[in-house]
């Protein structure tokens, strides 16, 4: 099976001349369909930059990005929205819901973008909300939802368009631990059920337990989690491959 996203020797610099900031240096990464990848790193290490490049929101300074096997770095600007529409679902730290729309309409707008008609789109949106456990909140405005509920609406919105890959930037950072756990459970369960690739950027250790694979990023360079390799060597392949095993990595959300 082809990788959902392939990043090859990507660099990214912001600005030019002497003021240029090298945010990423020679990053290569592959995310397979159905794989849950957690990316960790300190603030300013380039996590968001890499996620934006994978999401075809930002162009790399050099290197190539393949989405579902297609090189998107060669595409003209006007074709990029279409690539995002077909392949990428985003989940943001700040939810980014449309405050004037109900939960169902927030989800339906992803279908509206795909040209789906209103009544059908709303029906599908309500189904999607039910699948994130918000079947009874279809008509609620975001202002009347809790943070965790908002993020679940955002997840429904990201998934309803049937994307190849879900990119989540700190999806639990604004949530309490209970909501965070719900959200992580949901993303990972739906991703596995629907065989979607998921990339989660975080510096929340509690999300590590959900990862198939963990990469660390520091100063714009990737480092595969050595704990994982060590863990595998010591314990052999577990029920979920790549599960981190070091004590301090295993700080689960309280149930």
């Amino acid at each position: 099976m082809a990788a959902a996203i392939t990043v090859r020797q990507v660099t990214k610099s912001y600005g030019g001349g002497t003021a240029a900031v090298q945010a990423l240096g020679q990053v290569s990464l592959e995310v397979a369909a159905g794989e849950i990848l957690v990316m960790m790193g300190p603030s300013g290490s380039g996590k968001t930059t890499l996620l934006s490049i994978m999401g075809v929101i930002l162009r790399p300074s050099s290197g190539t990005v393949l989405v579902a096997g297609h090189d998107v770095t060669a595409l003209p600007e006007r074709e990029l929205p279409g690539v995002r529409l077909r392949h990428i679902g985003f989940v943001f730290q700040g939810f980014n819901l449309f405050p004037a729309l109900t939960a169902a309409e927030n989800v339906a707008i992803a279908l509206d973008l795909r040209g789906e008609r209103r009544p059908a789109a709303l029906t599908r949106a309500k189904d999607a909300l039910a699948s994130v456990g918000l079947g009874d909140k279809a008509d609620a405005l975001p202002a009347n939802l809790s943070g965790g509920q908002k993020q679940r609406v955002a997840i429904a919105r990201a998934l309803v368009g049937d994307p190849t890959i879900i990119l989540a930037d700190e999806p639990t950072a604004a949530l309490d631990s209970h909501s965070g756990k719900l959200v992580m459970d949901l993303i990972t369960r739906l991703a596995r059920e629907q065989q979607r690739a998921v990339v989660i950027v975080t510096h929340d250790n509690r999300t590590l337990g959900y990862a198939d694979r963990i990469v660390h990023i520091e100063d714009g360079r990737l480092r595969e989690d050595d704990a994982r390799a060590r863990g595998r060597a010591e314990a052999g392949p577990g029920p979920i491959s790549g599960r981190p095993t070091r004590e301090w990595d295993l700080v689960p959300f309280p149930a």
Partner: peptide
Amino acid sequence: REYGTLKAMGATNGY
């Protein structure tokens, strides 16, 4: 921010 979100979601400028 909403327009940015729409763009990220794949909305064209025309939309």
